[in-house]
Design a protein around this nucleic acid. Structure first.
Lengths: 160, 160
DNA sequence: ATAGTAACACGAAATTTTTCGTAGATCAAG
DNA sequence: CTTGATCTACGAAAAATTTCGTGTTACTAT
């Protein structure tokens, strides 16, 4: 295995990732479409990081990145509430909001969309691009396929 | 090396990717900010795939996915022209538009943005997410760091 | 030449997303 | 009970994005 250069190893993995992502996406077709807007996503990030929070808390967090009026944050959370992106506890006077979607599923959705719109669905290209611009010739692709077979066989033995 | 399971191998690579992406992003800070909107990106995709095209051509392509008026496409291209996302040849009566940004650099930019907004900058998480939801404990992370060192040493010998 | 077709420019309507102002309710302190 | 601070609700302005209608010009074929 030590014969393979980093890039070769990468290509093998990238291919594997590509295959799995595709399978995963197919098995997810009937899931609810989560499509937060840019700022909604920012708020979700805050809720994911800090857990259930009041509007005030969220707003203060937001302000660290960019000055934002209190009612702006409030309105956003209300909108997100209607979209079922967040739930809220109205017990105390200041409502406590919490994310109603998990970070993972949201990332999964957004990743799929991003893959389609930006990389035309090629997870392979995405990973390769993440590394640097390495063109893969048809020949290389074949090489990968061969290597992959070996790798798969090996993995099935070595896997925990 | 054959002791490593697929996921272990993946984590090593993901970490490496993460490091490189970060370096890459830092060295790119002073680049012009390419931020095409959703539909602008769709048009760029068409231009990248088909090469320089007339408005008519682009519009027909667009219609395969979603009915779009001719002047709508035209207007978008004009806007993109002003933003320098595309250039155009006005020789013949029907102008010929071509992408003024490469697919790679655009993907690079968008990937960076996406990474920040959706994965809080963690390429590692992105790749892991692409594969499936595997939690990485702090302990695992340490393991990776160790493995990486080995891998790096090995790579520097084996690399082409 | 003239009618018909297809192209461009331009402005503005329509839609979506983001921001903010105001009114009314609730609570705590004097 | 009144004042002041803080909260929610709501509507609407502002900004960004997308779509389309109209007028004009250029080319083609009769």
């Amino acid at each position: 295995m030590l014969l393979f250069s980093f890039y070769e190893k990468l290509r093998i993995l990238a291919y594997e990732i590509s295959r799995r992502l595709e399978a995963r996406r197919e098995s997810m077709e009937n899931t609810a479409p989560i499509k937060p807007t840019e700022t909604e996503l920012e708020i979700l990030q805050i809720l994911w990081q800090h857990g259930p929070s009041t509007v005030r808390l969220v707003n203060e967090e937001q302000n660290k990145a960019k000055e934002t009026g209190y009612t702006t944050t409030l309105k956003l959370l209300q909108i997100m509430y209607e979209k079922n992106l967040v739930s809220r506890d109205e017990e105390s006077r200041s409502h406590v909001y919490r994310a109603a979607v998990t970070e993972e599923e949201t990332q999964q959705h957004l990743l799929g969309r991003f893959l389609d719109t930006t990389f035309r669905g090629s997870a392979m290209k995405l990973v390769m691009q993440a590394l640097g611009n390495h063109r893969t010739t048809p020949d290389e692709l074949n090489q990968i396929r061969h290597l992959l077979k070996k790798l798969e066989d090996d993995s099935s033995h070595a896997d925990s």
